[in-house]
């Protein structure tokens, strides 16, 4: 904690405190503007609950996919097993820099009814890609995968190559080395990354709303309420969503910490 009379730590505490207030105060204001009865009404509506369910579950699926595909990529990038790995890493980070609506439009052009891919999808599965939960997962996956890949890569980076070399010399083929040594040691970092990935996916709006206005995720529902003029309802839904997300976040982090120590 802050040492008495030590100006350096006081300054740091001050700067940090300003930042924390910057995060907390807008939310406190938002929450205090809501009426309790409004909250109670809104939380019981089927469309609202469905929106929450959509958001949480689809984000979980997107995170799962991000980790499933992202961890192998992270391993290859970490061990420099691909040529020009720096370039591919930059590509992985690209979704972070692209404005979300552009992500949505790009995915729309790539997978919508007019494209080759979309038409193929249409013919095989007899439904359009746009406006489905699959599209939502795609949008969520696109914007959140950099978090999964980066976290996994950093976790692998922290494992000394020596350990993998020893495992190999003891007779372990590459798959064995990965599953018995690298992955268990990287698990903490990957799990932490998974939480961030989920958080990013659940909050995505710009890309999702272009690809799939319906079925509605929570951010889209809130926006819909806002733009049709019922600001109070939008605020109420937002506050409830916020608390739910915070709870999930805290629970996941606690679980992660228990896993690390236990």
């Amino acid at each position: 904690m802050v040492k008495k009379g030590n100006w350096f730590f006081l300054l740091f505490g001050f700067l940090g405190g300003v930042l924390l207030l910057f995060i907390i105060l807008p939310f406190v204001t938002l929450c205090s503007n809501q009426s309790l009865e409004n909250l109670v009404t809104v939380v019981q509506e089927e469309s609202v609950l469905l929106a929450f369910l959509n958001s949480f579950i689809l984000a979980a699926i997107a995170s799962f996919l991000a980790i499933l595909f992202g961890t192998p990529l992270a391993y290859l990038l970490s061990r420099r097993m691909v040529p020009i790995s720096g370039f591919w890493h930059a590509i992985v980070d690209l979704p972070l820099a692209v404005p979300h609506s552009i992500v949505g439009i790009a995915l729309l052009f790539f997978l919508g009814g007019n494209s080759i891919f979309g038409a193929l999808f249409n013919n095989i599965f007899r439904f359009g890609f746009v406006g489905t939960r699959i599209a939502i997962v795609a949008a969520m996956l696109f914007v959140s995968l950099p978090y999964a890949v980066n976290a996994a890569k950093e976790a692998f980076d922290r494992i000394s190559v020596r350990i993998e070399q020893v495992a190999a010399s003891l007779g372990a083929p590459p798959a064995s080395v990965f599953f018995r040594v690298s992955l268990p040691l990287a698990k903490g970092g990957i799990s932490s990354g998974a939480i961030l990935t989920w958080a990013r996916a659940v909050s995505e709006f710009g890309a999702v709303v272009v690809l799939a206005y319906h079925p509605m995720t929570a951010p889209v529902k809130i926006w819909d309420e806002f733009t049709t003029g019922t600001l109070e309802r939008a605020g109420a839904i937002a506050v409830i969503f916020l608390f739910l997300c915070l709870s999930v976040f805290i629970v996941l982090r606690l679980l992660l910490r228990k896993q690390k120590n236990g």
Binding site: S160, Q165, A167, S169
Partner: peptide, 20 residues
């Protein structure tokens, strides 16, 4: 031949034990 087929063992300065 890949390392896992050579039948050799290694010890290093930093022990390189599997921490987990």
């Amino acid at each position: 031949a890949p390392p896992y087929r050579r039948g050799l063992s290694l010890i290093f300065q930093d022990y390189a034990l599997f921490p987990h």
